[in-house]
Design a protein around this nucleic acid. Structure first.
Length: 599
RNA sequence: GGCCCGGUAGCUCAGUUGAAUAGAGCAACUGCCUUCUAAGCAGUAGGUCAUUGGUUUGAAUCCAAUCCGGGUCACCA
C-alpha cells in the first residue's frame, strides 16, 4: 500500500520544483516524500503551504530566511505557476497563479474523463460477498458488497482490469439443517406456493430447525444430558448429519433437494443483488472448490514446508512468524478450510493471471488470511505477494453485535424497503416532483434509499467497525447520500437553464474566495480517486464528495450563478457548477450511488 | 494467557508518512424561504484527543507501560 497522501492535485507539480529549489539554492538533495505540503489555512494568504521546520536544522538557516529564499526562487523560475508567497513562522504559503486555476477550469469542466486513468494492463481479482445459502442477506453482507463493488470500481477507474468474484458457501451442515427442516415440516410448500422470497423462505426453515431442535433437546437434558450432547443427539441433528454424509456420497434424492433449495436461495439473492446494483463476473461454489488444494499438501511436504504427524495429519509450523502451528489436512485425509482456500487462490490465478487478488472479508478472519498468504509465500507461489485482505469491521447495533439467535439481525431487504418508505414520505412531504409519473417516482425512491444506505455504509473507514442505529441512521440531512444527491439536483436545475457557452473560453476573472475554494477542491479530484484506489478505501471518496457538495451549497447560498454581475462571471460560475456536478456524479458513481436530475 | 485491532464533542464519524487556534454531521439553541430546489445556508454551545511517561523545535498522530472494549488463537466455515 502507498503511504497516505493529502488530497491535492497541483502539489504533484509543485513538489519537484521545491526539490530542485533546495538543490539549486543550498546544494541540499532531498526527495518529494520528505516535503510536507498542506492546503493553506483559510486565515492565511495562499493556496498551498510548505512546512519549513524540517530543513531548518540541516541548512542552518532561520525559517524566515529559508521561506523567503525558496519563495523568491520559485517565483523567479516558475512565474507561470507561482505569483506570490509569504512566510509566517515556519510556513511558506504559496499562491498559485490564477491562470493555472482558470486553465484547469476550462479544460476540466466539460471533460467526462476527468479523474480517470489510462489502462495499466494490470489485472486484479476482487472477491466480495461470500454468503451462506441457508439464510438471507443482512446489513453486514451489504457492507461487504458495497465495499467490494466500490473498490472494484475504483480500481477500474485507475486503470486495472478487474474481475469480480463471489464464493457461495453452498454446502455443509448449515444447509442440511434447512433441508431437514423443510422435509419434515414444509408439506411441500415452496416460495411460489407461499409467496415468500426464496432466500427468506429457506432461511425460515433454518430458523425453524433451531426451534424444533431445542424442543427435542429438552427431554434429553432433563434426563441428565449436557447441552452439547443434547444438541448432537437431538433426532433432527442426527438427520442433518446423516444428510451431510448422503450429500457427500452423492445421494440423488439429497442432491436434488439441495439443488432445489439452493435454487430458491439464488433466486432471492439475485433479486437483492439486482436491487442494490451488485454484480459478479464469476461465481465460485464451495461445493465445487471444497476438494481443491489437496495437491498443495503433497507439494508442501516435498518442499519441506509442511510436515506429517504420526496420526497422518499434515501441519505447517508458523511459530517462527509469530503465529501457530496450523493444520492443513485432517488425519482422515479430508481438507480443512485453509486447504480449499489455497486451492481457490491457485484456481483464480490459473484463470485470471492476476497481479493482485483482493479478498473483502470481515476482520474476524484477519488471522486466517494472514496464514493463507504466508503459506502461499512459503510455497513460493508467484501470486502470493498479490494477495490482499481488505479487512472490514463488523456492523454493530447500539446494543452490540447482531445475533441471529436473538433476532437482532437487520435484514437487507427489510432495511432497503424501510428506507424506500422514508424516501417516499419525505419526497411527498416536500412536494417538489409532483409532475413525476409513478415509474419516475419509484426510480427516485430507489435512488434516494440506496444512496442513503450505501453512503452510510461506505463513508466510514472500511477497517473500522461501525454502529448502525436504526433510529437515526435513516437520515437524509447533513453528511448523507441524499444531501449530496440533492446538491447534484440543484446544480442540474441551474444547468437546465443555461450551460457554459463558447464565450467561456475567454472568461478570465478573479475568483472570489468561495469560487476559489471550490476550484481548488475540484482540482484535487483525480488525486483523491488515486489515493482511494491505492488504499482500497471508498470512504475517502465519500468524505471528499461530501466536502464538494457542502462547499458548493455554501457557495450557492452566497452567489447567484445565473444572475452574476457580469457575463464573464456567469460563465465562470457555470463552469464551476458543471464541474462540481460532474465530480459529484462521478464520485458517487464510484460508490455505486446514482444521482438524480431532480428530487 | 499469546497475537491483532480499536478508545477523538452527548451520539455517529473525519483528522494519524509529526506541524499554524483538533474538524464535520446528528441531537440542543438563534437567525435566514416573493430571488438558480430550505433534503439548504449562517451562527451559538459542546473536547484533560482513555491514562501516565518518553522522543522532538513541535505529538491526537511516533515509542513504552497501564486501563477499557472487541476479535482471534477449532481435525468449524
Amino acid at each position: 500500500m502507498q503511504p497516505k497522501q493529502p488530497r491535492m492535485g497541483i502539489v504533484k507539480q509543485v513538489k519537484p520544483l521545491i526539490v530542485k529549489a533546495l538543490s539549486d539554492l543550498y546544494s541540499y538533495e532531498t526527495t518529494e516524500n520528505e516535503l510536507t505540503i498542506n492546503i493553506t489555512k483559510p486565515e492565511f494568504e495562499g493556496d498551498y503551504t510548505l512546512v519549513l521546520f524540517s530543513f531548518v536544522k540541516q541548512l542552518k538557516k532561520s525559517p524566515e530566511a529559508l521561506g523567503k529564499e525558496i519563495g523568491e526562487y520559485l517565483i523567479a523560475n516558475n512565474a507561470e505557476l507561482f505569483t506570490a508567497f509569504n512566510v509566517i513562522k515556519g510556513f511558506l504559503n504559496l499562491t498559485i497563479a490564477d491562470a493555472y486555476w482558470q486553465n484547469f477550469l476550462l479544460s476540466a469542466h466539460a471533460d467526462p474523463n476527468h479523474g480517470r486513468k489510462q489502462a495499466s494492463g494490470k489485472s486484479v481479482v476482487v472477491e466480495y460477498s461470500s454468503p451462506n445459502t441457508n439464510k438471507p442477506l443482512h446489513l453486514g453482507h451489504l457492507r461487504n458488497n458495497f465495499l467490494g463493488w466500490s473498490v472494484a470500481q475504483l480500481l477500474k477507474e485507475t486503470g486495472f482490469d478487474v474481475v469480480k468474484t463471489a464464493i457461495l458457501n453452498d454446502r455443509g451442515i448449515h444447509i442440511c439443517k434447512s433441508m431437514v427442516a423443510w422435509q419434515k415440516f414444509a408439506n411441500g410448500a415452496t416460495p411460489d406456493s407461499t409467496g415468500i422470497k426464496g432466500d427468506h423462505f429457506v432461511g425460515d426453515y433454518y430458523v425453524l430447525f433451531g426451534v424444533e431442535q431445542k424442543k427435542e433437546m429438552e427431554p434429553l437434558m432433563a434426563g441428565g444430558m449436557s447441552k452439547e450432547d443434547a444438541e448432537k443427539n437431538a433426532p433432527l441433528m442426527q438427520a442433518a448429519q446423516k444428510m451431510l454424509l448422503d450429500w457427500e456420497n452423492g445421494d440423488p434424492e439429497v442432491r436434488n433437494l439441495w439443488e432445489k433449495m439452493n435454487g430458491w436461495v439464488y433466486e432471492g439473492f439475485n433479486e437483492t443483488y439486482a436491487k442494490i446494483g451488485s454484480d459478479f463476473d464469476k461465481n465460485y461454489f464451495e461445493s465445487e472448490t471444497y476438494l481443491l488444494g489437496k495437491e498443495f499438501v503433497e507439494e508442501g511436504l516435498q518442499k519441506g514446508v509442511f510436515y506429517k504427524k504420526e496420526d497422518g495429519s499434515v501441519w505447517i509450523d508458523l511459530t517462527a512468524d509469530g503465529l501457530d502451528e496450523k493444520l492443513v489436512l485432517r488425519k482422515d485425509g479430508t481438507s480443512v478450510y485453509i486447504t480449499q482456500d489455497l486451492g481457490l487462490a491457485d484456481e483464480k490465478f490459473k484463470e485470471f493471471h492476476y497481479d493482485q487478488s483482493i479478498y473483502v472479508i470481515a476482520d474476524e478472519q484477519n488471522y486466517h488470511m494472514k496464514v493463507l498468504k504466508l503459506i502461499l509465500q512459503k510455497l513460493n507461489k508467484p501470486y502470493a505477494d498479490g494477495i490482499y485482505h481488505l479487512s472490514y469491521g463488523l456492523v454493530e447495533l447500539p446494543t452490540g453485535r447482531m445475533k441471529t439467535r436473538e433476532g437482532t439481525v437487520v435484514d437487507a431487504d427489510d432495511i432497503i424497503e424501510e428506507l424506500k418508505k422514508v424516501a417516499r414520505e419525505k419526497t411527498e412531504e416536500l412536494g417538489k416532483v409532483k409532475d413525476f409519473n409513478p415509474g419516475e417516482l419509484n426510480e427516485l425512491y430507489d435512488t434516494i434509499a440506496l444512496g442513503a444506505l450505501k453512503f452510510f455504509l461506505l463513508r466510514v473507514d472500511p477497517k473500522k467497525k461501525m454502529v448502525f442505529n436504526p433510529e437515526d441512521s435513516i437520515d437524509f440531512h447533513g453528511f448523507t447520500g441524499p444531501f449530496i444527491q440533492y446538491t447534484h439536483a440543484r446544480i442540474k436545475s441551474i444547468l437546465r437553464k443555461e450551460i457554459p457557452g463558447p464565450a467561456a473560453a475567454k472568461a478570465s476573472v478573479d475568483l472570489l474566495p468561495k469560487e476559489k475554494e471550490l476550484v481548488v477542491l475540484l482540482e484535487q479530484y483525480p488525486s483523491v480517486v488515486e489515493q482511494a484506489a491505492n488504499e482500497h478505501n471508498p470512504s475517502a471518496i465519500g468524505l471528499y464528495v461530501y466536502d464538494v457538495a457542502k462547499t458548493f451549497s455554501s457557495f450557492l447560498n452566497d452567489h447567484s450563478v445565473l444572475h452574476a454581475d457580469s457575463e464573464e462571471k456567469k460563465q465562470v460560475r457555470l463552469q464551476i457548477s458543471m464541474l462540481a456536478g460532474n465530480v459529484i456524479s462521478a464520485g458517487m458513481a464510484l460508490l455505486g450511488i446514482r444521482v438524480p436530475e431532480r428530487m
